[in-house]
Design a protein around this nucleic acid. Structure first.
Length: 507
RNA sequence: GGGCGCGUAGCUCAGGGGUAGAGCAUUUGCCUUUUAAGCAAAGGGUCGGUGGUUCGAGCCCACCCGCGCUCACCA
């Protein structure tokens, strides 16, 4: 009984005729003893390879598998398009050639996954295709996919009709998005290549990839609100990490000298174009180096990734050409703000800053710290005008509690951030390795916390203890992987580079 | 959180107080090199939800839910 099957389906709430019909087809296939969910199928070729090597493959047998994306039935013969991992190819089925299975093919739909054995040929109209000798149903789709028709015009441009475009559904049902919108798959393949290239680059430079706790009793390494969770047996609250900085530095203290981690970090803050509650960060630490060394290293690394993955250092992002060729511009935060505003941020009153911020249309909270206001002034003036890759160097000490004091400039630390198109893409410093200074910085943070700054750092006594054993001079770097992928693949929002972005619960 | 916008068939969208529409997809029939296949016919809707106004509500009003854009916040 079809009704019986249906009642046991979770999907019964959104049953409609299209789904019902497919259940009926399952029944029919059953009667014909066609197994709708196969165990395996031997594949020895793919759509792209067949098209690229048509001359040598013409007339030869191939075995391919994929999802049916279009069917054109013409009585006792049919054409269909099969989509596999790398593209689409047309298949041709004739009752005379495939026999009884042709009747079962009538019960197959767009969305079903099938395997084909057949020979390569070109149709009258010139499309490279596979003429099936046999067909196997590998998986029956019981839910219709939002299929869009596509054609390739005479200029080779793909034209898609009625493309599945509802952003909400695309993010919620990424599996459907991936099936139907091929450019989505390309972005995530690129993302994977970017990450594997970074790994390879770091491995070649003798970095050790490590894993540090996601669940931390004290969160640190960044200024952000955390997610809180609870361990039942230990009966203690734990925080999801907002950064892995303090653990990686413990490893530097332990003598590992060059470490990196590609980590999911979690921040309990707003969601927008450039923020997802969980995101991917690359952090790396190098003993005996400083931030000058790190700037050169970032340039090398970005150039390497650009060329390895994209074959160029030049990218069109939002109609602007960005060039990641080294060296990048280097500008001083203090000098640059002076150029824009005439203000010397190191020798000015809080009121100067507040007034200047108002002048630039920023809403200001007079309770913010001096350093924070400087940062806001920078964002409101200099940052938006930075287009090409640029290092902004030497930040105020108050907003950099883990960075080493500048060797010659009072009130500043040896820190830089990389900016492209007005967006921050990395953050690095000569790491603070003086345990006494570090304790003072934590004490300051603690004070800010008491004054209501929820994002001020917590004091991490164990980290201080570690540093007291002696930490070598160290250069450290954090790069937001999602934002790098956005830039390099030209995606406008972080959700387009995260497979399953955070969404509100349905209903 | 604020502002603006959106939610109608599986998909893409029209319809703006008076019998719920189109294209694609689906079903039936014909069709053995088609290709947005074709020809002929058919089925498919809680018009996001709840309440209200009205003789009558996809349509007007209120609230709610979800999404998008944007501002704020935020590495």
């Amino acid at each position: 009984m079809v009704g019986g099957i249906l009642e046991n389906q979770n999907s019964q709430n959104d049953l409609n005729d299209l789904v019902k019909r497919r259940f009926d087809e399952l029944e029919e296939l059953n009667k014909k003893s066609v197994e709708p969910y196969a165990y395996q199928f031997d594949v020895d070729n793919n759509s792209q390879n067949i098209k690229e090597n048509f001359e040598s493959l013409e007339g030869k047998d191939v075995s391919i598998a994929g999802r049916i994306m279009a069917i054109r039935r013409m009585g006792k013969a049919s054409f269909a398009h099969l989509q596999d991992k790398v593209g689409r190819i047309q298949i041709y089925l004739r009752k005379d050639d495939v026999g009884d299975i042709y009747d079962a093919f009538r019960l197959m739909d767009i969305g079903d996954i099938i395997g084909i054995n057949g020979f390569v040929f070109k149709t009258k109209t010139g499309e490279i295709s596979v003429h099936a000798k046999s067909l196997s149903l590998l998986s029956k789709s019981i839910r219709p996919i939002p299929i869009a028709k596509e054609i390739v015009d005479e200029n080779g441009n793909k034209i898609i009709f009625d493309q599945f475009a509802d952003k909400e559904l695309r993010y919620r049902q990424r599996y459907v998005d991936l099936i139907v919108n091929s450019e989505v798959k390309d972005v995530f393949i690129k993302r994977s290549k970017i990450i594997s290239t970074l790994r390879k680059f770091l491995d070649e430079k003798e970095f050790l990839e490590v894993e540090t706790p996601v669940l931390q009793p004290i969160y640190g390494g960044a200024a952000a609100r955390p997610f809180i969770t609870h361990h039942n047996t230990l009966d203690m609250d734990l925080y999801m990490r907002i950064a892995d900085e303090l653990y990686l530095k413990r490893l530097i203290i332990g003598g590992l000298d060059r470490v990196y981690e590609i980590s999911k970090d979690f921040r309990n803050e707003g969601i927008d174009k450039t923020h997802n509650p969980e995101f991917t960060m690359l952090e790396l630490y190098v003993a005996y180096k400083d931030y000058e060394w790190m700037m050169n290293f970032v340039e090398q690394m970005m150039e390497n990734v650009s060329i390895s993955v994209f074959g160029t250092t030049k990218f069109d992002v939002e109609n602007v050409e960005i060039d990641f060729k080294s060296p990048w511009n280097r500008i001083s935060m203090v000098d640059e703000i002076r150029k824009y505003t005439g203000i010397d941020i190191l020798n000015c009153s809080k009121n100067n800053l507040l007034n200047e911020l108002k002048k630039h249309g920023a809403e200001v909270d007079p309770n913010e710290s001096h350093g924070k206001l400087i940062d806001e002034l920078f964002e409101a003036t200099v940052q938006k005008d930075i287009i090409q890759p640029t290092f902004v160097i030497d930040y105020p000490i108050e907003i950099s509690p883990l960075a080493k004091k500048h060797r010659s400039k009072a009130g500043l630390v040896e820190r830089f951030e990389g900016f492209v198109l007005g967006r921050e893409i990395c953050n690095a410093f000569s790491e603070l390795n003086d345990p006494i200074d570090q304790r003072e910085r934590f004490a300051n943070q603690s004070k800010m916390r008491e004054e209501g700054d929820e994002e001020a750092h917590q004091i991490d006594e164990d980290f201080l203890k570690a540093m007291e054993y002696g930490m070598p001079p160290t250069a450290g770097l954090g790069i937001g992987i999602d934002r790098i992928v956005m830039l390099l693949t030209g995606q406008p929002t972080i959700r387009d580079v995260i497979l399953f972005p955070q969404m509100r619960a349905e209903k």
